[in-house]
Design a binder for these strands. Sequence first.
DNA 1: GTGGTCTAGACCACA
DNA 2: GTGGTCTAGACCACA
Lengths: 119, 119, 119, 119
Amino acid sequence: MAWEFAGGQPIYQQIIRSMEIQIVSGKYHPGEKIPAVRELAAQAGVNPNTMQRALTELEREGLLYSRRTSGRFVTENESTIREARRTLAEQFISEMFKNLENLGMKRGEIIEAIDHWKE
Amino acid sequence: MAWEFAGGQPIYQQIIRSMEIQIVSGKYHPGEKIPAVRELAAQAGVNPNTMQRALTELEREGLLYSRRTSGRFVTENESTIREARRTLAEQFISEMFKNLENLGMKRGEIIEAIDHWKE
Amino acid sequence: MAWEFAGGQPIYQQIIRSMEIQIVSGKYHPGEKIPAVRELAAQAGVNPNTMQRALTELEREGLLYSRRTSGRFVTENESTIREARRTLAEQFISEMFKNLENLGMKRGEIIEAIDHWKE
Amino acid sequence: MAWEFAGGQPIYQQIIRSMEIQIVSGKYHPGEKIPAVRELAAQAGVNPNTMQRALTELEREGLLYSRRTSGRFVTENESTIREARRTLAEQFISEMFKNLENLGMKRGEIIEAIDHWKE
DNA sequence: GTGGTCTAGACCACA
DNA sequence: GTGGTCTAGACCACA
C-alpha cells in the first residue's frame, strides 16, 4: 500500500515545475529579469541553496540565463519556451493516463471518458 | 506568486483518495474486510482519529460499511464502486485540463496534444 | 438557547416510565413477582435508593403492590393497567405535538403531516 | 431489560438536532451569522471539536455554510430549511408511533388516540 | 479572530 | 478486539 503524504516530489523539483509553468504561461515574459535567489527563496519559504539548485537546472534547460553582474533573466528564445510548454503538457497528459490506468481503466475506456468529458 | 509545496490537501482527504483508488482499482475487493482503524492508522503513520475521519467519509460515500464489533468492509455494491471510479476518473481528467489551461493552452491545442499523445 | 445534554429527566422518573412501559406492554404480567430492589438497582446500574423511590411511586399509581414478607408484584387489576396505558399514550402524543409546535408548525400542518405519515 | 438513561444519543447528534430545531423554527434566521465554533462550544459546555463536528454535519446538510475567515452563517436557501423541517417533523411523528407501538397499541388504536387528543 | 486540521489519549458499548 | 465518541490542546491559513 502506497501512502505518501506530504509531498512525494523533492522540493527543488516542485520549484522547477512551478517556474516552468510561470514562464511558459507568460507570467514571466521573455527577457524579463527575475528576482535575486535570496529573494525568490524567501518568497517560497525555502533554503537559498534549494532555490539555487532549481535555477541552475532551469538554466541548463535554457529557460533562464544569467549575466555575471546584472542578474538572471528569462530566455528570449521563444522556441525554447514553446518546447518547454510541449514537454510540460506531455507530462500532465502522461500523468493523467497513468492515474486512470491505476484506476483499472483500459485505454479504450480512458479515451471514451476524455471524449465524454470534452462535451 | 503561489508556492504551495506539500500538496496542500489535508491528510484525511489524501487518505480518502488513496483508499478510493485502492477500492476502485480492485486492490480491495467487494466484501473484503479491511484492517482495523488503529492498524490502518499505524500503517499510514497518522493518528487514529485522522484515519477514522477518512473512513467515516468513505462510509458516507457508500464504499465502506462497518459492523460495530466485527470490523469494516468494502461494499458489495458493485455499482457504487463503478460510480466512484467514474467520479475519480473525471477528477483526474478535469485536473489535467486545468493544468494545461494554466499553461496557456486553448481547448483545441489541448485536444490535439492528447490525440498526439495517444498514438 | 436550551442545551440540555445528558438527561434532562431525573433518573428515578426515567425508571418509572421504563417500568410503566414494561407493565403496560405486557413484558411484566399481572400478578407476576418482580425482582428485589437491590437486584433491579444493580441491573439498572443505579443506587438502590433511587430504585426504591421509583417503586414506591409505582405502588402509589397502583401498578405494583408489595406483600411484607414475600416481595413485590405487578397489579392484577387490568383496568388500572389499561388506565396507565392510556396515560402514557397521551404523554407520548402530547410530547409529539409539543415538539412539532416547537418546529413552528401550526395545528393544521401537524395534523396534515400525521395524516400524510399514516399512509 | 434495556435500561438506557442519558438518552443514548451522542452529544454531537444532540447538538445537530438542537441546531436544526433552532434554524427550522426561525430562532436563527436565514443568512444570520452564528457564533464562532469556540463560543458555541463554550455555551454548550462541550469541546470545540465536538461542536465542530456537529457544525460540519449541518453544513453538509446545507443548513449552514462557512466563510473561512468571516464566520458561519445560516443558509439563505429557504427551501432547504423547509425540507429540514419536514424531515424533523417526520422523525418526531415516527418516534411517537414507535413509542405507542411499544406500549402494545395497534395502528387503529393509535390513530383513535390521536384523534381523541386533538379535540 | 475565524474556520479547519491534527495529534494524543481516554473511555464506552458490544460480543 | 472493534468501531465510535469525546476532551485537551496545538498549529495553520487567511484577512
